[in-house]
Design a protein around this nucleic acid. Structure first.
Length: 606
DNA sequence: TCGTGGACTTGCGTAGAGCAAA
DNA sequence: TTTGCTCTACGCAAGTCCACGA
């Protein structure tokens, strides 16, 4: 039975006389008659200590089952009708399918947007028969409401399904996961990240995207490139179909790829974050950031020096780097105009995105940033800068129009080339990682004190929040936010009433005791005092929770936790303050950070 | 040097699972 | 058991950065 799982374990044998201890907690131990101790370790314990390939290859052996395709289109029942100009009209299969995509989004605001409608209509027409094309000439005369109602009823029906039916679906999903969700890479069975091919639908994009509403077409086996090792069992395409290509490229980590039709970019199926290959890369990332820590002072001195350079390009580079370092801005690659939403990062900032104030509210040399960053999230910040930076900015703005580049002599590749010279492996994004992690470490030191576990966790969240604010990780306030805040407030009010009632009782008991001086009334006072104390604690907890939630209204902690904070800092913090790792990392996160949980001790220093 | 394709990381929104309160 | 809310997993868009070829 063990044999099939043997690749998941590492067996180690030690002479009993030589055994001292093991730092790892999870293992099976057996003693042999001849004085050997046999340990059976889950292989995740050792995978981080495995040799890495030095020739740039990522694996030697790779075997998987290929992707899971989106289910085929199911035509609408005849009773569900589409109406054109008030009259029912039966659509051809492919025109109907695309129409259902629109119908499913009918409740969304963006189906009312001009660009969305125009793009959709254009792509929809391509799917129509020539007869349909001649009849349907105006999207405004199309009535998708009955279709929309049908889908709503269907999703309602899904919710109302019996337990058994739901269980059956769950089991089927589990079976597919077991079959397609794992692969063998070298000696490990690994979880695959996204083994399902994206279903067809209408492209949305984020922010003001010029391509919103376009048809994202269905991916067929003929679009798929399979990557696996030569000596593996190759995945089979569905009956009657062929793969576009099967290749054996071990310089890359993906298992499956295809080209998407909206931007023409390539999409991949890759491994889950818990995999060795992702974990090691993640670890490396934080090691690079730690190397930056060692030389960041030197780099800061240098860019401050460069503010005085007689060359404009060097001054621009130095000011940009200052922003990247101080404000954790992204690099800001150029983007093709008209292909995506208009967003910028540091190097692509335009004149219109900053305002200079020699003096503002008692502060000197204030720069106001206001621009849309990644995912069209607004970055708004007013910060005082050093005089030299301010003067340089004034210089960069001279004789420019609002739509001109602020740093016209700079782009990300120039900047990164420079950074590479300052430190091996240094790029703009390393500053984000470094500043995020170092901030967490500092904040944890500052905020954590000897206190209850919930209070310590609040401190952790606050430290995490400081980082999220630095990195501008925002979220739309949850739809239920106001309500849940209200609920919490109701609870607090109730607690307060309880508290004043309890205090009254305590007072009465005290008075009683003063009058009688007997043992019984003394005990009552004690009991009442304890009750007051308990309620005070509960009230405080609720208030803390309310503060935490309020502070978190528009801030998303997940992204920084997952991508910017060296998990070893958090693990060390947990160990130092005796907090179970489960309190700060859920199951998925613990799997992703297995390497850190395994290697960080309580004295770990980023 | 520049443009482009390719690979990989980062990022937000949301469906629905799961859990606690009613 | 139902309802209401929170949390997690997932989906997929949108960044970064590098290699390559003209």
């Amino acid at each position: 039975h063990l044999k099939q799982w043997l690749h998941l374990f590492r067996v180690i044998r030690v002479k009993e006389t030589e055994y001292k201890s093991t730092p790892h907690s999870s293992y099976l131990k057996k003693k042999t008659a001849t004085g050997w101790l046999i340990f059976l370790f889950p292989d995740c314990v050792f995978r981080w200590e495995e040799e890495r390939y030095t020739d740039g290859s990522k694996w030697r052996f790779l075997e998987h089952k290929g992707p899971v395709f989106a289910p085929p289109y199911e035509p609408l029942p005849n009773k569900v009708k589409f109406y054109y100009d008030g009259k029912p009209m039966k659509l051809s299969g492919s025109a109907e399918e695309v129409a259902t995509f629109f119908a499913k989004m009918l409740d969304h605001e963006y189906t009312t947007k001009d660009i969305f409608r125009k793009n959709f209509y254009k792509d929809w027409r391509k799917e129509m028969t020539s007869e349909e094309k001649s009849i349907i000439t105006d999207l405004n005369k199309c009535d998708f409401r009955e279709m929309s109602e049908y889908f709503k009823a269907q999703s309602e029906a899904r919710k109302q399904m019996s337990k058994e039916e739901k269980q059956k679906i769950k089991e089927e999903n589990e079976r597919i996961l077991q079959e397609y969700g794992f692969c063998i890479m070298d000696n490990h069975k690994e979880r695959i990240g996204n083994f399902r091919i994206e279903p067809p639908g209408l492209f949305r994009g984020r922010g003001d995207h010029p391509k919103m509403g376009m048809l994202k077409r269905r991916i067929r086996p003929e679009d798929i490139i399979i990557n696996c090792s030569k000596d593996s069992k190759q995945p089979k395409p569905p009956p009657g179909t062929k793969w576009k290509e099967v290749r054996h490229d071990n310089k890359v980590t993906w298992l499956v790829s295809w080209t998407e039709n909206i931007q023409g970019s390539i999409k991949y199926i890759m491994l889950n974050p818990s995999s060795r290959i992702k974990g090691e890369k993640d670890w490396q990332k934080y090691e690079t950031a730690r190397r930056l820590k060692k030389c960041v002072d030197r780099i800061r001195t240098q860019y401050r020096d460069d503010w005085k350079s007689k060359e404009m390009r060097i001054r621009q580079r130095a000011v940009a780097l200052y922003f990247i370092d101080k404000l954790a801005l992204r690099a800001g690659n150029e983007k093709e105009e008209g292909e995506t939403a208009d967003t910028v990062g540091c190097c692509s900032l335009r004149v219109e995105h900053i305002k200079l104030y020699p003096k503002l509210d008692e502060q000197e040399y204030v720069v106001e940033f206001d621009f849309l960053g990644k995912d069209s999230i607004r970055y708004y910040n007013k910060i005082p800068v050093e005089k030299r930076v301010f003067k340089n900015l004034q210089l960069f703005l001279e004789n420019k129009q609002p739509e001109d580049d602020l740093f016209d002599r700079l782009n990300t590749s120039i900047l990164n080339k420079h950074l590479q010279e300052l430190m091996d492996g240094l790029t703009a994004k390393v500053f984000r990682t470094y500043n995020a992690s170092i901030t967490l470490q500092q904040q944890l030191k500052e905020l954590t004190s000897e206190d209850s576990i919930p209070a310590k966790i609040l401190s952790y969240n606050r430290a995490n929040r400081a980082v999220a604010i630095l990195c501008n990780h925002q979220r739309a306030p949850p739809k239920t936010f106001e309500k849940s805040m209200q609920n919490l407030q109701t609870k607090i009010d109730e607690k307060q009433k309880q508290l004043s009632a309890a205090r009254k009782q305590l007072k009465a008991a005290k008075a009683d005791h003063k009058a009688s001086h007997d043992e019984k009334s003394r005990k009552t006072v004690e009991v009442k005092r304890k009750a007051v104390q308990r309620i005070e604690e509960q009230l405080m907890k609720l208030q803390v929770q309310a503060t935490d939630r309020e502070e978190n209204k528009q801030i998303a902690l997940g992204t920084s936790k997952l991508n910017y904070l060296d998990p070893r800092i958090s693990v060390a913090w947990c160990k130092k303050w005796s907090i179970p790792t489960e309190k700060i990392y859920n199951k998925t996160q613990r799997e992703k950070f297995a390497w850190a949980i395994d290697m960080a001790e309580k004295d770990y220093e980023f």
